[in-house]
């Protein structure tokens, strides 16, 4: 019995690590908590009007019977009435989520700058067009194209305070393998040390330069610019 229990406990530990391409429905609680709350009933799957949700099966690397979607297969359509959350009987999908724009299913990351067509100087920006929160969750940031010095590059830029992780950008990416993809926020987001201060903000707060005069620090240019 102890052996069986230990085995199942280890298996449980493994099941907690969600594969990065697997996205939980809107309002899903953080993964360990979700697995203690989800009843594996599939009510959210049934009430999704776009049929993007499915229940994980044995053999997939996701806890058996729990709901998920894969953005490249079909993204969350961000229904304003959030029927999947309403259908959830257990609260594994948090019922306090009433504004779909506040969903945080993951975070889109423009993972590959080498293949993204906008980074190559084209005006693809399909991800930007597909974004339900265009100009908020994804903006196009203008840069000079260093290859010509004449042209501009419009870099799709995701803003983590707005992105819901719906996956529309990933779904829409025209590449054979997507350059932009929704990742779990824990994988996508960095975190500054608590003691870090942004000089330009501190200066604004103080209303004056924080250091009198000009500090001259040694120049350390990258090898490629020499």
């Amino acid at each position: 019995m102890t052996l069986v229990g230990t085995g199942l406990a280890l298996h449980t530990g493994q099941a907690k690590a969600l594969p990065p391409e697997v996205i939980r429905p809107p309002g899903a609680r953080a993964e360990p908590e979700f697995l203690g709350a989800c009843l594996r009933c599939g009510m959210c799957v049934r009430d999704c009007p776009y049929h993007i949700l499915d229940l994980a099966k044995l053999g997939q690397n996701t806890a058996v019977g729990t709901p998920y979607f894969v953005a490249r297969g079909g993204p969350c359509e961000m229904c304003v009435d959030i029927p999947c959350v309403k259908a959830c009987p257990s609260g594994a999908l948090d019922p306090t989520l009433t504004d779909i724009n506040r969903a945080r299913m993951g975070l889109a990351v423009l993972a590959d700058h080498e293949t993204c067509l906008n980074f190559l100087g084209l005006r693809c920006e399909v991800c930007y067009r597909a974004c339900p929160l265009r100009d908020k969750a994804i903006t196009l940031e203008q840069q000079q194209n260093p290859r010509s010095s004449l042209h501009a590059m419009f870099i799709p830029t995701v803003h983590s305070d707005q992105c819901t992780g719906c996956g529309k950008c990933e779904h829409a990416c025209v590449l054979e393998t997507t350059a932009i993809r929704v990742l779990p926020r824990r994988l996508a987001k960095g975190e500054l040390g608590g003691h870090y201060r942004l000089g330009w903000e501190e200066q604004k707060k103080a209303g004056k330069p924080l250091i009198e005069g000009v500090m001259d620090l040694p120049d350390r240019m990258p090898e490629t610019t020499k």
């Binding site: 530990g13 099941a15 697995l35 989800c38 594996r40 058996v64």
Partner: peptide, 8 residues
Amino acid sequence: TGSISWEL
């Protein structure tokens, strides 16, 4: 485990 292990 804080998880419904048996359902696996």
